[in-house]
Amino acid sequence: MFAIPAVLFAGMSKGGFGSAASFAATPFLALILEPGQAVGLMLPLLMVMDVTAIKMYWRKWDLRVAGVLIVGALPGIILGTLLYGFADPNVFKFLIGLVAVGFVIWQLGKSRKLFPQPKREMGTKSGLFWGAMVGITSFISHAGGPPAAVYMLTKRLDKMTYQATSVLVFWAVNIMKVVPYSFVGIFSKQTLTADLMLLPFAVLGVLFGVWMHHKVSEKLFFGLTYVFLAVTGTKLIWEALAA
């Protein structure tokens, strides 16, 4: 039952209601599951959300911006695969917690304009670098939103193009993660069975997120979410270090 609100939230974010926070379901689930189980459970659901969302934003993306990030993500995914093969599970719990807390800091800094907006667009080399960051953070905890945003925000995309480009990037990145996840044994019969039960909530969350994207203010909702995410991330870090 704990997974249902987490999946609904991720779906709402994928639908455009605070899309950068769609990874938040993974830290929440990591409180009750092993890190590998948490990311393995979420990937098939995120892929269903991607398909649902991509129909809503079809061909409204900037293909060049998306392509640079997608190509750059590949070495990051490869690095994540190698790290997972050698690291203790508590290392991944620590990394998930670290990304969660880092995300909250990034969001707060961005909202208070502590991170200056670049005065010129980033070039392809910078885009490939941030794409690699997308790959590694996405592999660890489906948290590629912030590094993707660092690059995309320099492109001065309008709201619709930005959201559509983000949807396309993570549709491709999530597909790219299937084989590596299978190779390192992240998927299991239990996670795939749970995915079947949670599938309707994934689709419902995306549709609800699209509606909320146009109708509802995000400020209070995500303010509370960031508090829970900071607490969750801190707890994961503490548990990993204690172990």
Rank of each mutant, 00 (worst) to 15 (best):
G11E: 10
M12K: 07
S13K: 00
S13M: 06
S13N: 12
S13I: 07
K14A: 14
K14G: 14
K14W: 15
G15T: 02
G16M: 11
G16N: 12
G16H: 13
G16Q: 11
F17Q: 10
F17W: 11
G18I: 07
G18T: 10
S19A: 15
A20H: 01
A20E: 12
A20W: 00
A20K: 00
A21T: 07
A21H: 02
A21S: 07
A21C: 05
S22F: 12
S22W: 00
S22D: 13
F23N: 07
F23L: 09
A24Y: 14
A25T: 12
A25Q: 06
A25K: 01
A25C: 09
A25H: 05
T26H: 00
T26Y: 01
T26Q: 03
P27V: 05
F28A: 04
F28Q: 02
F28G: 01
F28M: 09
L29T: 11
L29G: 08
A30C: 08
A30S: 15
A30I: 03
L31P: 01
I32S: 14
I32M: 11
L33N: 06
L33D: 06
L33C: 06
E34W: 01
E34S: 10
E34K: 02
E34N: 07
P35F: 13
P35W: 08
G36P: 01
G36L: 04
G36Y: 04
Q37K: 10
Q37A: 15
A38R: 03
A38L: 02
V39F: 08
G40Y: 04
G40W: 04
G40C: 03
G40R: 04
L41A: 06
M42G: 06
M42S: 10
L43E: 03
L43W: 05
L45W: 09
L45E: 10
L46F: 15
L46Q: 11
L46S: 13
L46W: 12
M47I: 15
M47A: 07
V48I: 05
V48G: 01
M49E: 15
M49F: 11
M49C: 15
D50P: 02
D50I: 13
D50N: 11
D50L: 05
V51Q: 00
V51Y: 00
V51N: 01
T52D: 04
T52S: 03
T52P: 01
A53W: 10
A53E: 13
I54R: 05
I54L: 11
I54F: 06
I54S: 09
K55P: 00
K55H: 10
M56T: 14
M56R: 13
M56K: 14
M56L: 14
M56N: 10
Y57F: 15
Y57N: 14
Y57V: 14
Y57G: 14
W58Q: 12
W58K: 12
W58T: 13
R59I: 07
R59Y: 09
R59D: 10
R59H: 12
K60F: 00
K60N: 12
K60R: 14
W61C: 05
W61I: 03
D62N: 15
D62A: 14
D62T: 11
D62F: 09
L63H: 10
L63I: 12
L63C: 07
L63W: 12
L63V: 14
V65A: 15
V65K: 06
A66N: 04
G67T: 11
G67E: 05
V68K: 03
V68G: 04
V68E: 05
